[in-house]
Computed example of a mutant assay.
Amino acid sequence: MDAFVARSLDEIRFWSRIMKEHALFLGLGFRAEDTQLKSEANRFYTIFENIERRSHEYQLDADPNTIKDFNTEVRVAATNIWAFKRMVLGLILQCKLPGGTNFPLLVDHVSREANYFRNRLDELNSGTLEPLPDAIIDENIFFLKIMADHAKFIGHLLDPSERKLVDQAREFSNDFDTLMFQAADLSSMRPQSQTVPLLSQFVDENRVSVKSLRDFKKTARDLIEECRIKSIIHPLLADHVFREAERFLYILDMFDQSLSGIKVNKREILHS
């Protein structure tokens, strides 16, 4: 099995579905009169639905050159939806879409994920993935912000009468804001901060919080699907944010395994 092929297909299968759903959510948030924006969102939904379907047609023994071309094609689509999202953000911040239901932070949030996706495809095709110590810090900074945003969105989309759940969402928001600041501090101390003990503690602490948030999202998703709580959260959005928490946990587990292997070998990680 070619590691490049496996990694590429994994990234595309996960993120193309996310991009497809972003297009759906943005479309739902536009006003009835925003027909051109709705049409563009629908177009992106179709593009990424097709990419997602094709990604599952490739096998892990596919020709790496074929997958490299596929990555390039998908990167173009990711760049285009990123540009669309930034354009929409500009319209909202200039008060040109009054009455829509897309929060500015949500549009910024989904644009950051599109940018992350296209950068990952660039890294894969160029063979320039970050060294482990940098990847641990940078991936955590990215995903901790995503998780903090999710908590804020959940808190704002739950009905105000769901006071206990709203309070829980606010607590998660504060927790992940704090973790994000800690990650930024660790980042600014690079490369001296990139020792195995510090990075291991960093990963372990974040994983505890992500597991708690993941479980909260799962409960919220199930309650929403069963119509047992009051909210304006689309059931697919509830599942969407749950999957992203699962993705972050998967990445943290990979980092932990890598660090454990290095600890066994009694080596320090240093910035190269």
Results as ranks from 00 to 15, higher is better:
residue 196 V to I: 13
residue 208 V to E: 13
residue 237 L to N: 00
residue 161 S to R: 12
residue 188 S to P: 04
residue 222 D to N: 14
residue 110 V to E: 06
residue 264 V to I: 15
residue 94 Q to R: 14
residue 155 G to C: 02
residue 172 F to P: 11
residue 160 P to Q: 04
residue 141 I to H: 10
residue 2 D to W: 10
residue 159 D to W: 04
residue 178 T to W: 04
residue 71 N to P: 10
residue 21 E to T: 06
residue 70 F to Y: 14
residue 217 K to G: 10
residue 159 D to P: 10
residue 129 L to F: 08
residue 137 I to Y: 04
residue 90 G to A: 03
residue 150 H to I: 03
residue 107 V to A: 09
residue 78 A to I: 03
residue 145 K to I: 08
residue 51 I to T: 14
residue 271 H to Y: 10
residue 102 N to Y: 04
residue 60 L to I: 12
residue 115 N to C: 07
residue 118 R to K: 15
residue 199 L to N: 06
residue 145 K to Y: 11
residue 172 F to W: 06
residue 38 K to S: 08
residue 117 F to C: 02
residue 169 A to T: 04
residue 226 E to F: 03
residue 248 F to G: 03
residue 158 L to P: 08
residue 261 G to E: 11
residue 30 F to D: 02
residue 41 A to D: 06
residue 81 I to E: 08
residue 158 L to Q: 03
residue 90 G to I: 02
residue 35 T to N: 11
residue 269 I to H: 02
residue 17 R to N: 12
residue 136 I to W: 07
residue 63 D to M: 03
residue 265 N to F: 04
residue 89 L to K: 11
residue 76 V to M: 02
residue 141 I to P: 09
residue 158 L to R: 11
residue 78 A to S: 05
residue 86 R to P: 14
residue 187 S to Y: 10
residue 207 R to F: 02
residue 205 E to T: 15
residue 107 V to M: 10
residue 194 Q to E: 15
residue 200 S to M: 12
residue 67 I to H: 07
residue 182 Q to N: 15
residue 214 R to E: 12
residue 192 Q to E: 13
residue 71 N to I: 05
residue 132 L to A: 03
residue 217 K to N: 14
residue 80 N to M: 05
residue 18 I to L: 09
residue 216 F to T: 04
residue 29 G to Y: 08
residue 211 K to G: 05
residue 69 D to I: 06
residue 212 S to D: 12
residue 185 D to Y: 06
residue 3 A to V: 14
residue 143 F to P: 10
residue 249 L to P: 11
residue 106 L to N: 09
residue 54 R to M: 08
residue 221 R to L: 09
residue 230 K to Y: 08
residue 260 S to T: 12
residue 236 L to P: 03
residue 240 H to F: 07
residue 76 V to P: 00
residue 201 Q to A: 12
residue 151 A to H: 06
residue 100 G to P: 07
residue 264 V to K: 14
